[in-house]
Amino acid sequence: MSDSQNLLAEQRRALILDEVRRRGGVRVNELTRRLKVSDMTVRRDLDALARQGVVEKVHGGAVPVVETSTHEPGFEAKSALELAAKEDIARAAAAMVVPGSAIALSGGTTTYVLAHHLVDVPDLTVVTNSVRVAEVFHAARRAGTAGGDQPGAAMVVLTGGVRTPSDSLVGPVADQTIRSLHFDVLFLGVHGISAQAGLSTPNLGEAETNRRFMRSARRVVVIADHTKWGTVGLSSFATLDQVDTLVTDAGLPEEVREEIAELLPDLVVAGGPEELSPPRDA
């Protein structure tokens, strides 16, 4: 199967998952009409989503999997979701990075996509607790991107620590490394975000490491697609008033954007007709 066909399948599955979550379930015959594909194609898509653990197949369709507050999906399962949204968010976030600055990237699939957009930014110092993010910069250096070993290539610091299912490093070693450093900007991926619970994660170790990241940053930018809004993990690690900017995608409903705009200094909606912060009353 070609790359373009793979991409179409990924986009189609993201649309199906969105529909499942929004409506609480879908039927195969509805999806075939909406997506203009065969019954067999839809069933293969549902099989793939079921293997990722994000939907449950039922007779004639699928329903969402109700996740507990302690459920932590693996990196591969999460990386296949909301691909277009993550790309839009990553492009908008990358535009905020100044050459020569010191930035931090937390673990997560959205920060992983962002890393690919930063390999050509000169003279960056990048601190991360994500094995996957570090691999992006190391691969770029080996391939000669951003000058390879020439001046301009990013200097990358991987914190060390205990590896989580999402390939983040957490725990005392990671926390001690971060505690001694200072960043211009932290780009923070999250499991869940809500008005009441703030930023949350199902992993207690990751919660503490994220707190340490936030204390060491002059500016905190949360990068999260629209499906993260309303999700609450086991441990809250920050309130929304501790966030400087939220970068999300155009799939976020207008009423939610208005709610967030009242809670945060800066909301960037990426991938729409224009990327902007919703207007506020004077």
Rank of each mutant, 00 (worst) to 15 (best):
M1N: 02
S4K: 05
N6S: 12
L7F: 08
L7N: 09
A9K: 13
Q11H: 14
R12A: 08
R13Y: 01
R13F: 02
A14K: 01
A14E: 12
I16N: 01
D18V: 01
D18H: 14
E19Q: 13
E19P: 00
V20S: 05
R22V: 02
V26K: 01
V28C: 02
V28N: 02
E30L: 01
R33K: 14
R34P: 00
R34L: 12
V37M: 10
S38V: 04
D39Y: 10
R44Q: 11
L46M: 05
D47M: 09
A48I: 08
Q52F: 02
Q52S: 14
V55D: 01
V55M: 06
V55C: 08
K57L: 11
K57Q: 15
G60K: 06
A62Q: 04
V63H: 01
V65L: 07
V66I: 15
T68V: 00
E72A: 15
P73D: 07
P73Y: 05
A77T: 06
K78R: 15
D88E: 14
I89R: 05
A90Y: 04
R91S: 06
R91F: 10
A93V: 06
A93W: 08
M96T: 13
V97G: 04
S101K: 08
G107N: 11
G107Q: 11
T109Q: 06
T111Q: 07
V113E: 13
V113Q: 14
P122V: 12
P122E: 12
P122M: 12
D123T: 09
T125Y: 12
T125M: 14
T125A: 12
V126N: 02
T128D: 02
S130H: 00
S130V: 00
R132M: 13
R132W: 00
V133W: 01
A134D: 00
A139C: 00
A140W: 03
R141D: 00
G144V: 07
G147L: 08
Q150S: 15
Q150M: 12
Q150Y: 11
V156I: 13
V156H: 03
L158Y: 03
T159P: 05
G161Q: 10
T164P: 05
T164N: 06
S166D: 15
D167E: 15
D167S: 12
G171R: 10
G171A: 10
V173E: 11
A174L: 07
D175A: 15
V190Y: 03
G192R: 06
I193Y: 10
Q196T: 15
A197P: 01
A197T: 07
T201S: 13
T201K: 04
P202E: 07
P202C: 09
N203D: 15
N203V: 13
G205R: 04
E206L: 10
E206N: 04
T209V: 14
T209H: 09
R211Q: 14
F213K: 05
S216L: 01
A217D: 05
A217I: 11
V220D: 07
V220L: 06
V222T: 09
D225L: 11
D225T: 09
H226I: 09
T231N: 13
T231E: 13
V232S: 03
G233R: 10
G233I: 09
A238R: 09
L240W: 08
L240V: 06
Q242R: 15
V243M: 09
V243N: 05
T245S: 07
V247C: 10
A250Q: 12
G251Q: 10
E258A: 15
E258W: 12
E258Q: 15
E259M: 15
D266A: 10
V268P: 02
G272Q: 11
E274R: 14
L276E: 13
P279N: 02
D281F: 07
